[in-house]
C-alpha cells in the first residue's frame, strides 16, 4: 500500500483539539516541515508531547508562539526563554516528566501495555500520593502509558510502504512515538522503492506508519545553528 501524501493532505488529517506527539531532541529528529505546515494550516487547542520546546522561532516553538497549543507535555524547555515566558504568563499549561520516564511511558503505550512501576522521584513534588503503590514490601510509582491520536516523526530514509530508518542523534523519541500514536505521519529526506532499506536496518516497521511525506528539500531549520558553535 502506498502511503505517500502531499504535506498539505497529510497535516489536514489533524483536527483542532488533537493530541500530537512530535519527535526530536533539540533540532535532530524534529519534523520541522510537518510542523511548519501545521503552523500554516492553523489548527488550535493542540496538546503536544515533545521532549523539548525547540528554540524560539523554530519547530514547535512556532506553534506555541502562534497560540495554537493549550498544553505541552515535555521534559525540558531550558533552551527556550520565549516558551518559559508564555508558560509563566499562564498562556500554556506545561507538564514536566523525567526524560526517560516520558520515553518509557510512550514506549509502553507503543507496546500495547498500560503502565509500569518506577522508583524515580518517589518523594518529589511531581509525584502525588495516589500515584504510589505499596507492593510486597516496596513502594513504587505507577507510571501510566502515554498514547496520542497523532505522531509526527522525522526519518532520514523511508520506502513507499512506510518503513523508516533514522540517523545518528535524530533517533531519540521518533521510533517510540511511531509505535504509540493512532495515526503516524512521517516525513523523510530520502524516499525510495520497497527494498531500498535492508530489512535488518529498518528502525520503524511499515505497520506503524500511516502517511508518508517525501521532503523535496531541507529548509534552514534543519541546518547548523550558529549560536551552538563554540569558538
Amino acid at each position: 500500500m502506498k502511503k505517500n501524501r502531499s504535506i498539505e493532505d497529510a497535516i489536514a488529517a489533524i483536527p483542532s483539539g488533537a493530541t500530537v506527539m512530535i519527535g526530536g531532541f533539540g533540532n535532530p529528529g524534529t519534523p520541522f516541515s510537518l510542523i511548519n505546515e501545521l503552523v500554516r494550516q492553523g489548527q488550535t487547542d493542540l496538546t503536544l508531547i515533545k521532549n523539548d520546546a525547540n528554540e524560539p522561532g523554530h519547530g514547535i516553538s512556532r506553534l506555541i508562539e502562534n497560540g495554537q497549543v493549550k498544553k505541552l507535555i515535555t521534559t525540558h524547555i531550558g533552551l527556550n526563554k520565549k516558551v518559559i515566558e508564555i508558560m509563566n504568563a499562564g498562556d500554556l499549561i506545561v507538564e514536566f516528566h523525567p526524560q526517560g520516564i516520558l520515553a518509557e511511558k510512550i514506549r509502553t503505550a507503543g507496546a500495547g501495555s498500560f503502565g509500569f512501576l518506577s522508583d524515580i522521584a518517589l518523594d518529589s513534588e511531581i509525584t502525588r500520593p495516589e500515584d504510589l503503590l505499596d507492593w510486597q514490601g516496596r513502594t513504587y510509582k505507577v507510571e501510566m502509558a502515554l498514547n496520542a491520536q497523532f505522531a509526527l516523526v522525522h526519518a532520514a530514509r523511508a520506502d513507499t510502504m512506510g518503513n523508516l530508518a533514522y540517523r545518528s542523534a535524530a533517533i531519540n523519541f521518533n521510533p517510540l512515538m511511531a509505535m504509540a500514536a493512532d495515526c503516524v505521519i512521517a516525513e523523510a529526506i530520502d524516499v525510495g522503492d520497497p527494498g531500498c532499506i535492508p530489512p535488518e536496518h529498518v528502525h520503524t516497521q511499515s505497520a506503524f506508519v500511516s502517511l508518508l511525506v517525501a521532503l523535496p528539500s531541507l529548509t534552514s531549520d534543519y541546518g547548523v545553528m550558529a549560536h551552538h558553535v563554540r569558538h
Binding site: H76, G78, I84, M87, N88, I120
Partner: peptide, 15 residues
C-alpha cells in the same frame, strides 16, 4: 514562577 527549565534527564541521572 521565574525560570523552570524542567527536569530533562536530571532526576534519573541524579538518582
Amino acid at each position: 514562577g521565574k525560570f523552570s527549565p524542567g527536569i530533562g534527564g536530571a532526576m534519573e541521572l541524579a538518582q
